[in-house]
Write a protein that binds this DNA or RNA. Structure first.
Length: 289
DNA sequence: CAACCGTGGCT
DNA sequence: TAGCCAAGGTT
């Protein structure tokens, strides 16, 4: 399996995208911001928000000093706005517990709000050059195909995925760090979910899935996520109104953005419970101050 | 652990 | 067109 390292690393050097968080001057904080934004949001949509965010808050302390609502507003339409709240809380934790510096320790990273197994490993690897299995959906797919020989990885991450990724990690720290980005980039650009570009793949001659004749996916059906008419959509509508408002918003204005009163109240209550919306006196609402 | 949590582009 | 998918985390 080590046979796949060199071709993927060489492919990466020749084909990697130029991304701001990969520049030599990118700080650990910049890497961390990018990782939060990239959780379930495509690169192209992250780029503008990322640039604005770092220009405004170049250090964790800068963000920590702001009201959380400003983070939610600056999050714009990246989706899953709780990530903005968690990034803000993580910035505060970094100031309080780590002197304002993004920690380089995996366990310390994992203890931050909004940082799970993947993000902790990604920051430790990308920002600090450490050796970690950085297992995201791209890497799971690359390993599922090239090593396991199946069209798609399991629906949700498993301990087996993690073990496989650990076993595929180069021994040398610097090489492991390069492998982490490179294997992820291969999954993003070539070994894609829908229509992989196997003709352009540096390891097609060693890929277990290709060698098996590229058999189609035969696992359980993937749950298609509906969106129309869901609480999520209602929450999105409500929050969009509050994001664009510069002053507290009257309840009546929120009522106008979603017809079903029961669902609307549930969504609003949920936003308040999540800390994304702050209720004020006289039935007015705003982003948390 | 399954369900929940946004938003938009692509096929 | 309607689904599928996107650098996950939390409960």
């Amino acid at each position: 399996m080590t046979g796949i390292h060199d071709p993927v690393l060489a492919w990466y050097d020749a084909n990697k995208r130029v991304l701001p968080w990969r520049e030599a001057g990118a700080s650990p904080w910049a890497v961390m911001v990018s990782e939060f934004m990239l959780q379930q949001t495509p690169v192209n949509r992250v780029l503008p928000a990322y640039e604005r965010w770092l220009a405004r808050w170049p250090t964790p302390a800068d963000l920590a000093a702001e009201a959380p609502g400003e983070a939610v507003r600056a999050w714009d339409r990246l989706g899953y706005p709780r990530r903005a709240l968690r990034l803000h809380a993580a910035a505060q934790a970094i100031v309080e517990r780590h002197g304002g510096e993004v920690p380089d320790d995996h366990a310390a990273l994992l203890a931050l709000p909004g940082v799970g197994t993947y993000t902790a490993a990604a920051i430790a690897s990308f920002a600090f050059g450490q050796r970690h299995a950085v297992v995201d959906t791209n890497v799971r797919r690359v390993l599922a195909r090239s090593l396991t020989g199946v069209a798609q990885p399991s629906i949700s991450p498993t301990a087996a995925d993690q073990r496989l990724a650990v076993s595929a990690l180069p021994d040398d720290e610097a090489t492991a760090a390069r492998w982490a980005v490179a294997s992820m980039e291969l999954g993003a650009l070539v070994c894609t979910a829908r229509t992989p570009n196997c003709a352009g793949c540096p390891i097609r001659s060693r890929c277990a899935w290709v060698l098996a004749g590229s058999p189609p996916y035969d696992g359980p059906p993937r749950k298609g996520q509906t969106y129309e008419g869901t609480d999520r959509q209602a929450r999105g509508r409500l929050l969009a109104v509050l994001r664009s408002a510069s002053a507290p918003v009257a309840k009546a204005e929120l009522d106008a953005c979603w017809p079903d009163a029961v669902q609307r109240e549930r969504a609003l209550d949920g936003l308040v419970a999540d800390g994304l919306v702050e209720p004020l006196a006289r039935s007015r609402y705003r982003l948390p101050g």
